[in-house]
Amino acid sequence: MFTNASNFVDGVDLSFAIILGASVFFLVAITAIMIWFVIKYNRKKHPKPGIVKENHKLEIIWTVIPTILVLVMFYYGWMGYKPMREFPKDSIHIKAIAQMWSWNFEYENGKVSDTLVVPIDKAVTLDLISRDVLHSLYIPAFRIKEDVIPGIDNKMWFIGQELGDYNILCAEYCGDRHSYMMSKVYVVQETEYSTWLNDKSSNDHPGLQVLKKNACTSCHSLDGSKIIGPSFKGVWGITETVITEGVERQITVDKEYIRSSIYDPNADVTKGYNPGLMITTYKDLITEDEVKDIIEYLKTLK
């Protein structure tokens, strides 16, 4: 709080100040009056109740004043929010792709990153894409949040105004690892941004890049631990018991098996795991060449 990290912070925090301020005032005032009455008119000191007539004027006053107050609150809430929906004509477009349970950001030049890097003082529009269930992209420091809904083209925009890194969280419940679906937004200088954007080299194996880009590693670990699905570590070449149409059988993890696990994951499910939540096919997302990269990578993962 009390930063100016994005262009919306001022308007939102002003609404907070007004609404929270009025709320605290009313809470304290009404509670104090209530306690004062209870002490002052305690039966021991005040055995006979006084006569109080119904008072229509008072009823009207305490109907009209709160009505005006809440409309003022509404107004500030609306004004703080309005710019969030007024999209700039000229901005950097980045696709924010949500998938259980990771974020990927795809830039206009094709670069894909699991963190969001943006230049300072430039308008950025995020096109929100979900590949499975509901997610919500939330940057607390920027005071923005918008749900990421499969099949619906939601978007959001902001201007990063202070250099630094800020949390990106998922705010819409999306399953087992919802609370781990995090990323960061880095607000950097323009020059740093363009260097980063045009540097497409990666230290990762090309196969690993494909796995990360498609959120495979958020369920299938690289170190042998069980997250949701079977780990990728040491999987190449082993004999595995799978369930095919309800029948158990032994298979060898080879090229053909890996290919079919990507394009038709529910056909043969490793025993002890649920078909569950994985996308039913990656046909449109992972090309045949990329499958080859994955296989080469798995071979190295002993």
């Binding site: 009313f26 509670t31 509404f74």
Partner: peptide, 27 residues
């Protein structure tokens, strides 16, 4: 009840306003 309902109701105003709700929704 009155004290807590006041807190419940007044916090309801905070999330009834658009700008503040965007920050607080689902928190």
């Amino acid at each position: 009840f009155i004290f807590q309902f006041l807190i419940g109701g007044l916090t309801g105003l905070v999330i009834g306003a658009l700008a503040t709700d965007v920050h607080l929704h689902d928190t």
